[in-house]
Structure formats: C-alpha cells, structure tokens
Write a protein that binds this DNA or RNA. Structure first.
Lengths: 105, 105
DNA sequence: GCCTACTATATCGCCGCTCGATATAGTTGC
DNA sequence: GCAACTATATCGAGCGGCGATATAGTAGGC
C-alpha cells in the first residue's frame, strides 16, 4: 500500500504504470501482482487516499483501457505520516546497530 | 514483528519486558497486546529468529514466571535486512518529498 | 497463420499477521 | 476487599498481500 502511495506521490499514474514504477524503484525486489495492485487501488479509493481522474491525456498518447489515479490531500498526509513512522524505525535500528555507516543516528 | 526484533537487538528480554520496551521506544504510539506479543514469539521461535534462554538470572532478581528470549544469528541478519529495506523506503519517500528537512537523500 | 510476450484491468480465495478479548495467577497498595 | 500491575497464554475476527485466473487488444518472430 505504501509503495502505491509512493508511486503516486510525484505524479498521477495508471495502474500498470504503478506496477512498473514500484518494480523499477526497488530494482525488481518488489513486484506487485495484479491482485495486490487492483485490490489495493479499490480499497484506497474507498478510504479516500487516492482518486480516479476524469480527464484523459491527449488522444495520440492515450490508451482507452487505462484508468489514471492521483493522491488526494488526505492520501498525501497519510503517506507523509507513514514515511515519518518508518524514519523513526530506521533511527531505532541505527541506535541498536542494525545498520552500518551511521553518520548521525 | 520487527518491533520485537528491535527490542531484542541489544539484549535478551522476557516477554513483558519486550512489551514495555516497544511502548517506551515509540513514546506510547505502538502498544503490543498480549495476542500480538506471545503469538509472534511462538512463530518467531518456530522460524528460528529468536530462542529461549536456558539460564536464569540471579535468583534475587528473578521472577519464576518469566521466560527470556534472545536473537539468533539468523534473527539478527533478518533484522538487519529488514532495517535496510526500510531505509530504502525512507530514501524513496525523501526523494518524493514526503519528508521534511532533507540533508542528503 | 500461429504462438509468445507485453499492455491493461479485474476478481477470487488462501494465508499470514495483528489485534482485542478473555483467562489465569501472584503481588502491591489503598 | 478491590484495583492496578506483572507475567504468560489462547482464541477468533479482520485486514492486507499474494498467486492464480480471466479477459482482451497489440506487436513481433517464424
């Protein structure tokens, strides 16, 4: 779910584009299957985290099948809060010496 | 689960001690209920992440009921790997401007 | 012409983890 | 006598992720 929020944080994307963004960003370590992806999208729309766009891109670059999504303000705040939560976890891990090369932890 | 690994990363602890360590470390934001705690411990022993100590502490500071646990080498490696995974997520979140005060990210 | 791979969306059921509720039981303090 | 704390344990509900499966159009190789 957080991966989907991350993928939509910088710009709107359609489902398949989210899948590829996650795979690229993680160097292939995280792969979203269609079950995870479209199931999550459905739930996240219901939760008000993301919304589907009405507007279509220019017809010459469009694909009818695509459905575009973007973060809502609420989704953005949830993503930020989650990112901060993870940051705290990472700091704790540094303090417990679970991570190498501490600059300031 | 990661919270339990974190709690045991610096020293061995008994179950209730893990509960309090997590609550203190997170400033009360994360509270492990007994269901999560003892269910996780059971599973994590089965997975070889943690192990129960045979030795008891000095009788004058001991409580018979307590059961002490520590990380195995495998558990330590899993905790490190997970910490690195989270670190990558945090870096991505920084790159997408979901986190304030970027020094280098 | 046929097969494979890619783009794109969608549903289903299983499984693993977390959580709250509940139980037990001894100790301390009011 | 009662509430709060220490300490462990089990159970069932619920949520989220995942693999499998389905549909369907397009592109490329042979």
């Amino acid at each position: 779910m957080f991966h989907i929020l991350l993928a939509l944080a910088d710009k709107e994307r359609h489902g398949y584009h989210i899948m590829r963004e996650v795979e690229e960003r993680t160097g292939g370590n995280v792969k979203l299957g269609p079950g995870t992806l479209y199931g999550s999208i459905k739930r996240m729309i219901g939760d008000g985290l993301i919304e589907e766009l009405e507007e279509r891109p220019a017809p010459d670059v469009d694909d009818e099948r695509r459905r575009y999504y973007r973060l809502t303000d609420f989704g953005y705040r949830v993503a930020s809060a989650e990112a901060q939560r993870l940051e705290h976890l990472v700091r704790s891990a540094r303090a417990k010496k679970l991570l190498p090369r501490t600059k300031a932890g």
